[in-house]
Simulated assay, not measured.
Amino acid sequence: MQEVWFYSILIFVVTWYFNIIPINVVNIFRAIFPFITAEYWFVSAYIMLIILIPFLNIVSTQLNYREHVILLFVLISFDSLSLIKNGTMTDYLASFMIVYFIGTFLRKYLDKLSSIKNWMLYINVVILWMVEIISMEILFKKGYGIESVRFTDKLLAFSGATSIFLIFLRARKFYSSIVNKMAKTVFAAYLLTDNPFARNFVWNNIFQTFKFQDYIWVPLYGLLCVAVIMLVTIVIDTARIKLFKMVKHHIVN
């Protein structure tokens, strides 16, 4: 988790230097201990999941097909309580557990899903995407504001992600050094852009995404933002990797 600490402290120093955030005890604590202060919710939930995996594996191996499906249905139902602002089971870890059990389900019963053809999966993804867009538009007009996106990040997201994952599982394997190089920097891109000290500045001041959210071509602008972020991240993360190697070489020798 050296990478997480590196970016957490780096962003804290940079944002403090440019007067984006104030320096105080709370912010210093959040920068030094990002795992326990939810500075990076994804990392915190992932660590919790890793700790739980030995026990979750025991559960997974004991479940048959029907029990596995029921467990997924129950977990997704609990996780979807956030739609009525009930956060009992919805603070990230539940979502990670659902993804984990979807993975174990696909690994154990992939052959049983052969009757689900790829064209069905593509149609499912398109329909879900249309439902997401329409539902967000309706909820936004009814005054839910930013909360309107919450309807799309539970059942719809899990179903769509599972369909896409199945498509890639069945796809022909390929190797690309360019894709692999970009994949290694995706986590760094998350650390750079989702840090609470820099998040608002990145999206509101640099990319100003709020100006484009009502335009039909917002997905294209989103792709442009992602491309810029990835290019900047590759440069920064390459420098970080070289720095870490120099430090490690100096310590060893």
Rank of each mutant, 00 (worst) to 15 (best):
R66V: 11
I53S: 01
Q62K: 13
R66Q: 10
V69T: 03
V69G: 04
I70S: 04
I51R: 01
A45K: 02
S60Y: 15
S77L: 06
S80C: 09
N57E: 15
I47W: 08
Y46R: 03
I47E: 01
L49G: 06
I47H: 02
H68L: 09
I70F: 11
I70R: 04
I76G: 00
A45L: 03
I50Y: 14
L72G: 04
H68E: 06
I53K: 03
V69N: 10
F55I: 06
Y65I: 12
S77W: 13
E67C: 06
L56M: 11
I76N: 02
R66E: 14
L49D: 14
R66W: 09
Q62P: 00
I51M: 04
M48H: 12
N64W: 10
I58S: 00
F55A: 04
M48R: 02
L71K: 03
L72K: 06
I76W: 04
N57L: 14
V74F: 06
S44P: 00
I50S: 09
L72M: 10
V69Q: 07
V74T: 07
F78C: 01
S44L: 07
L52P: 01
N57H: 15
I58C: 03
Y65W: 13
S44Y: 13
S44R: 11
V59G: 02
S80N: 04
L52N: 02
L72E: 08
R66D: 03
I70V: 15
L49I: 13
P54W: 14
V59M: 10
F78I: 12
S80G: 06
T61R: 10
Y65G: 00
H68K: 12
L71I: 15
S44M: 09
P54D: 13
P54A: 15
I53L: 10
E67D: 05
D79N: 04
S77R: 06
S80I: 09
I70C: 02
E67M: 03
N57C: 08
I47C: 03
Y46I: 14
L63C: 04
F73T: 04
S44H: 08
I51H: 10
S80Q: 09
V74H: 01
V59R: 05
L63M: 12
Y46P: 00
P54L: 09
I50H: 10
T61N: 13
T61I: 14
I47F: 13
N64G: 03
F55T: 11
L75F: 10
V69R: 05
S60V: 11
F73H: 07
S60M: 05
E67L: 03
Q62E: 05
I76A: 05
F78T: 05
